[in-house]
Amino acid sequence: MGLGTGHGAPTGHGAPTRRAVLTAGLAAAAVTASLTAGCSRHGTAGDDGRAPQSSTPTPSRRQATGSVLAVKIDNVAAARPQTGLDAADVVYAEQVEGGLSRLMAVYATRLPEVVGPVRSARESDLELLRQFDRPTLAFSGAQKKLLPLIRRAPLRPESPAQASGAYYRGSGRPAPHNLYLRPAELMPDGAPGRTALTTGFRYGPAPAGGTVTASRTVRYPAARFTFTWSAGRNGWLVSMDGTPARTTAGNRPAPATVVVQHVRVTKSTYHDVLGNYTPFTETVGTGKAEVLRDGRSYEATWSRPQATDGTTFTGADGSPVNFADGQVWVVFAKA
């Protein structure tokens, strides 16, 4: 089931036993969820540019009612410009092997025609996605030992092994930076709508105070994000690794709200083919955060008591820190 070139191809701190808790939680959730989330399907690493193989290929299925679409998106220089990133409601940025970064784009209010390049999933994604009701996860594959955990998770895993017709290899880029997704193939009922965004975020008027902020940079060992306020766009222009970010359509992402969320980052038990261990980003717990909106920065505390909860952000006086209407970027920074 090869992936050919498609038409229109673009040229806080948790407990020390967090991983054990996550594994146990996923196993418990699997009692009811795994039968419909694909626990009997076959997976593959699928991140080397070759078409993943499955002994039981299946066509795309109908989406779960109210299910968001989460897509793992490549973010190294060879993968840019990305496609469909500006249509996401929320974009999460996390550190991966070698100090590089990867994105997870979440779609609820609209679906772009194409999204990509699509890359592999990480253990941290499973905890992050528990906040949604059986989300659809589009990814190119995963480390072999992680695949059983993904299949047991209360989500709908959709790699090319499960839905080959939804993916294609674009022209003009080398593998593995050329795998693209047609979201409509996974979401035939269309975008589920804003109510599916059970993130815990609150939107409304800006809080009092704040610090005038022209730009904010978050650094990983081998990557960095810079957000520069643009009054004309009423948002924060995104730059990655010192280069202005653009989509293949020429648009510059300019999220209305940017969150720098300080989290505990530990070493996962999983690693890449070079032996680099995958960072595990803990998104359950509490910690410090910075909320950027309307050209100002607001200090906040984030809280997510359980994996099934959304994340709330409160100011020093205990009141919620409202986000501005529009796209939100959440960058996980090591506490």
Rank of each mutant, 00 (worst) to 15 (best):
A184N: 02
V258Q: 01
T247G: 08
L155D: 15
G235A: 06
Y92M: 13
D74F: 01
R216T: 15
A196G: 11
G275L: 11
G209S: 08
T266F: 11
P255F: 02
P52W: 08
T136Q: 02
T23I: 13
P57C: 09
S319W: 00
G25I: 03
W236L: 05
P160S: 10
F139T: 13
L22V: 14
R151M: 02
F280H: 08
V212P: 15
A121H: 01
A33V: 07
S297K: 04
R151I: 07
T198C: 07
E158L: 07
G4A: 12
A105C: 06
E282Y: 09
R182Q: 04
T199V: 10
R62D: 12
A138W: 01
V114S: 00
A245P: 00
T247F: 09
R173A: 14
R304W: 07
L3P: 04
S297C: 10
R61H: 05
G8K: 03
G275S: 13
R80T: 05
W329R: 00
A307K: 11
A77E: 13
P57E: 12
G318Y: 00
S67A: 15
F225E: 06
P255H: 01
Y277P: 11
H177K: 02
Q327K: 04
A175E: 13
L22P: 03
V265L: 14
V96I: 07
S124E: 00
S120W: 09
T257A: 12
G285L: 08
Y220M: 03
T213H: 05
R202N: 03
P16L: 07
W229D: 05
T136Y: 03
L22H: 12
S297G: 11
T243G: 00
L35P: 00
P135G: 07
P160K: 06
D272K: 06
Y203S: 09
M187K: 02
L149R: 09
D86G: 11
A70I: 01
P57A: 07
P148Y: 09
A249G: 08
N276D: 15
T83R: 12
D89K: 01
G242K: 09
A245I: 00
D125F: 02
R169W: 06
P244S: 14
R62T: 10
